[in-house]
Design a protein around this nucleic acid. Structure first.
Length: 428
RNA sequence: GGUGGGAUGGCCGAGCGGCUGAAGGCACCGGUUUUGAAAACCGGCGAGGUUUGCGCCUCCGGGGGUUCGAAUCCCUCUCCCACCGCCA
């Protein structure tokens, strides 16, 4: 959520921000919010004065004579009735204002490129060599099924499309990459955390997924709970409603959780294999720190670096892209995606997403800290993937496959696989 | 699923229907003392809105009611906790 003051002072920027994000209907919320704000500000002084009068009146009551008293009470009754009408109005206006303000997207940073969708993201850097295979490389689903590592048929049978079953060494590899990701971040000072996967609406709202993301979310209606699509939701919400000590910041967390996404509206897209699935495991890094733009930028560089280091350790070629306005979500100010080379897709495809929000989420979450001097301020928040699996298994097994269908294990993962250097048997 | 108890400032915690934005403690900040630190003592210290400023207004989980007047009484919702039952 943006500060209403930002809207007052610079409504054009708020509108332009929503337009840059290709969210015209949300740009309209800027004007609705401002209209409500103006109405509210017009009535507030009047209500204040009436309340002030009421308060003062009560204190004089005792000094009055019996006759005076009666007229006085009559007068107070009337004041109260009038006040009540105005207060109802005020409350309703406040509610509507909050609703509209919640719809206004975070301002995209200047450096966010113009563009309507991911095809217009701009490349920041490309790292690693794309491997020249001396043979026809196989897609992970062909290779995996041949090895008995993947079973999509039975998964679909019992759970529907976009589901998968990992078996044998693929389970171990899946676990290895996730554990490696956690260890890497713990080594860098992040606190591991294992949060709830089912959360209340407040957490979904606070992180900016609601309103808007309901269709992407599995919901347990009976209990009013939502399955998280990312650990960002519970972890960023962790200190919601608190005023943290500045000396306790930054808070740096690394969470490994299951994630659930309905993938509504993606029919026919990425239907094969492990790329787009309803359920996966993700190691996520989340940072909460003081409201300082420079520090947010530094954290952003650091969390991107963490992910890049993991990919480099896994010997995977990737590129970093600056996500354009149209591909940016409602709460983000800026986002770098990391795309890892996937031979079967013949493309760099998204495996990581590093976002910064400034105080947008913190304001919605009522997440503050007490600075050395002055009033409490809203924190800044950031997050990035460290590793999401099984998606990361695609580049891992495709890029490291051998002609016979076995897969070379990169050095960094061997310790998690009993020292094994190769997975699978020759099957081709 | 059943039955109770609770929700007050950064934290803990008191609070008779008006004198309570709220005792007390802790934490924090400033000072005295000390070679330094601790302790002790003195002082300060909630959040939000509005105003150039003085100030004014709001806030004791949310909403409603009773009352001239509610943190305090009543209703309701949300949340938390405890115990019993069931179960991983």
């Amino acid at each position: 959520m943006l500060d209403i003051k930002v809207l007052r002072e610079n409504p054009d920027a708020a509108r332009a921000g929503a337009i840059k994000k290709h969210m015209p209907e949300r740009a309209a919320a800027v004007d609705r919010a401002l209209a409500l704000d103006q109405e509210l500000r017009a009535m507030t002084p009047r209500i204040d004065a009436m309340r002030s009068e009421q308060k003062a009146a009560g204190k004089q009551l005792g000094k009055l004579s019996a006759e005076e008293r009666e007229a006085f009470l009559q007068q107070q009754k009337q004041l109260k009735a009038e006040l009540q009408v105005l207060e109802d109005e005020e409350r309703e206006l406040r509610r509507k204002l909050h609703e509209e303000l919640s719809l206004v997207p975070n301002l995209p940073d200047e450096e966010v490129p113009e563009g309507k969708d991911d095809s217009e993201n701009t490349e920041i850097r490309k790292v690693g060599e794309i491997r020249e295979f001396g043979f026809e490389p196989r897609a992970h689903y062909d290779l995996g099924e041949a090895q008995g590592w993947l079973d999509f048929g039975r998964a679909a049978e019992m759970a529907g499309s976009r589901n998968y079953i990992l078996l044998g060494d693929m389970v171990l590899l899946h676990d290895a990459i996730l554990r490696f990701a956690v260890d890497l971040l713990v080594e860098r000072g992040f606190t591991p955390i294992d949060p709830p996967l089912l959360v209340r609406d407040a957490a979904m709202f606070g992180t900016g997924f609601f309103p808007g993301g309901e269709e992407q979310t599995y919901r347990c209606e009976k209990d009013g709970l939502n399955l998280i699509g990312t650990a960002e939701v519970p972890v960023t919400s962790l200190h919601s409603g608190e005023i943290l000590k500045e000396s306790d910041l930054p808070k740096k967390y690394v969470a490994r959780t299951a994630c659930f996404r309905r993938e509504a509206g993606t029919y026919g897209k990425d239907t094969r294999g492990l790329y787009r699935v309803h359920q996966f495991q993700k190691v996520e890094q989340v940072i909460v720190d003081v409201a300082d733009r420079e520090r947010s930028l530094a954290h952003h560089r650091a969390i991107v670096r963490n992910a890049e280091d993991l990919l480099q350790a896994c010997e995977l070629p990737y590129r970093v892209v600056n996500v354009c306005g149209g591909d940016l979500g409602v709460p983000q100010a800026m986002k770098y995606d990391i795309e890892t080379w996937m031979p079967s897709r013949q493309s760099y495809s998204e495996t990581h997403s590093a976002s910064r929000f400034y105080d947008y989420q913190a304001r919605r979450l009522n997440l503050r800290y007490r600075p050395e001097k002055g009033k409490p301020l809203f924190c800044h928040t950031l997050n990035n993937t460290v590793a999401a699996s099984p998606r990361i298994l695609i580049p891992l097994i495709e890029n490291h496959q051998n002609e016979d269908g076995t897969v070379r294990v990169p050095e960094c993962l061997r310790r998690y696989l009993g020292g094994r250097e190769v997975l699978g048997r020759p099957v081709f």
